[in-house]
Each structure stands twice: as C-alpha cells, then as structure tokens.
Design a protein around this nucleic acid. Sequence first.
DNA 1: TGCGATTAAATCGTGCACGATATAAATGCA
DNA 2: TGCATTTATATCGTGCACGATTTAATCGCA
Lengths: 136, 136
Amino acid sequence: MLCFALHSAAHAMHSAYAPLLQPLGLTYPQYLVLMALYAQDAQTVGQLGQELRLESNTLTPLLKRMETSGWLRRSRDGKDERQVRLSLTDDGRTLCSQAAAVPRAFAEKTGFKMSELADLRDILNSLRDHLKPAKP
Amino acid sequence: MLCFALHSAAHAMHSAYAPLLQPLGLTYPQYLVLMALYAQDAQTVGQLGQELRLESNTLTPLLKRMETSGWLRRSRDGKDERQVRLSLTDDGRTLCSQAAAVPRAFAEKTGFKMSELADLRDILNSLRDHLKPAKP
DNA sequence: TGCGATTAAATCGTGCACGATATAAATGCA
DNA sequence: TGCATTTATATCGTGCACGATTTAATCGCA
C-alpha cells in the first residue's frame, strides 16, 4: 500500500513540524507561504498557488490570516487590478529567519543521512510530477 | 526541501485518488477506513485510529457519515460500553470489492515499476516510523 | 464496597483543502 | 467603441485534522 505509506509519512512529517512551528505561531501551510515569499517577494496569489499547488479558495483565507498576524501585506497590482501581490513585512522577514532553523531540526529527528533524505526528496518529486505535472 | 517534496507528493497522490473514488462516493480517508475494516472487521474506534493514525475527534464524525451512507454500523461493545465497534454492512463489503481496483489504477498513473513503488513504500514507512513510532 | 483515577468516545472551535460558483478587471474582435 | 470571453481572486459549503475539553464507563485500591 504505497498510498497509505505516503499518506502516513506526510502525516507524520506534519506532526513533527507542528511543535517546531507552533512556538512561532505558524501552521505548516503558512510556513510554506512564508518560505516561498522569502525566496521571491511580491508574488501574486496565482504564482504562489502554482508553487505550492494550492488555489485561491485555499490561499485567500490563509493569506488574510497571515495579513492579520502582520507578516505580509496584500495589495492589488497597479497594472492589473485583478492580481493581488503579496509582500512580507519586517515582522514577516524576522519570522523567516527564525523559521529557517526548522528544517535542520526536522532532519535530525529522522535519523537518516542527508544524502538519503536528498535521494528520497528526488524520488518523491518525481513521483509527484508523474502524478500531477505542474502546469506550464 | 524534503518536507515540501513529501507534502506535495502526498497532495498529488490524494488528487490522483479523488477522481477514482468519487464515482464510488468515497473520500480518501473513508476509503482507508473501508479497507481497514475489510482487513479486520468489528474493530473499535481506537484500534482503527491506531492503524490510521487518527483520533476520535476526526474519526467519530467521519464514521457517522459512513454510517449514514449505509456502509457500516456503529455499536457499543457489550462487554465494555465505552468502546464502539465498527462492522461493515453488505453494502460496505460490496463497495470494498469495487474499491479494490483503485490502487492498481493509481500505480499505472505513476509510470513507476511495481518494484520501485515497493521500495519507495518501505522507505516512507521507515521515515514515518522514525518520525512518529506507533504506540505499543 | 466505595470513590478517585484512568480510559474510550464524543464535542467544540479553528484552520486547511477543494469543487462549484461569483465578481470584477482585462482582452479580443466585430 | 461595444460586448462577449477570458483571467485573477474571492466566496460558499462540505469534509478532514487536531488541540482542548467533556461525558460516561471501567478499574484500582484502601
């Protein structure tokens, strides 16, 4: 049952991350958003959704909560008023630097070597792309 | 970013399963419950939760929906009235036999060999157990 | 035997995910 | 230019997941 192995491993990963993120006031999807914006700021909702494989129906409320928490700002693009651009606040960037320590703590929990984790990552990315290729 | 690879692969797996399960009127967690009860009937909520790594706060409403759909019955254990035992109905068992075809269809979607999928499964189970060992 | 501790489910509130649909801005073409 | 079409977000309803708490049955031990 590969499907259950994948499901439950992701579940366990989520559970392992939660206690690391909770002190920062972050959920796992919020953490992903933060990292994505740290890598590239001022993205639109659509761009972010393409990276994270989420759509506006999921992202809009999540982003509003993050705006309420003061980590990012949502503002309509001047050239195309349909688009909403997301930019980290100073608080958001500060949080990023704290959250940067999380993946290492996670890797240590697993007891795998870094090279094994890298291999596993590549297999999973390949599996994902076989299942659901990212749109162009 | 192993964490995102795992997250998004599970996400893609879920998306790949959904259209296969939808014609049967099942969600993915409901499918897992059905398979678990097919393997062993008359389990308690707690036993099922240990297998699926879920707790009563998630399972209770899910099981009630499945009872409403007519796939299983929930009844208090005669010897220990705290426990609720779950047994498949005839409709539930019929549904099981239809759902049995789903994993094969999934495996075909991936384009991996069966042996590769088995290897991946073992790695994921190991990763999961390193992260969150099942309780005794 | 009786009563506090433990255990099994259930309940409540919040957040995520998604299908379906709505709204409003931008685009294209007659 | 005018209007249908497309595109980007947003809204709504349902189901899952989970921390915290509640309820009720059972257990343990004086």
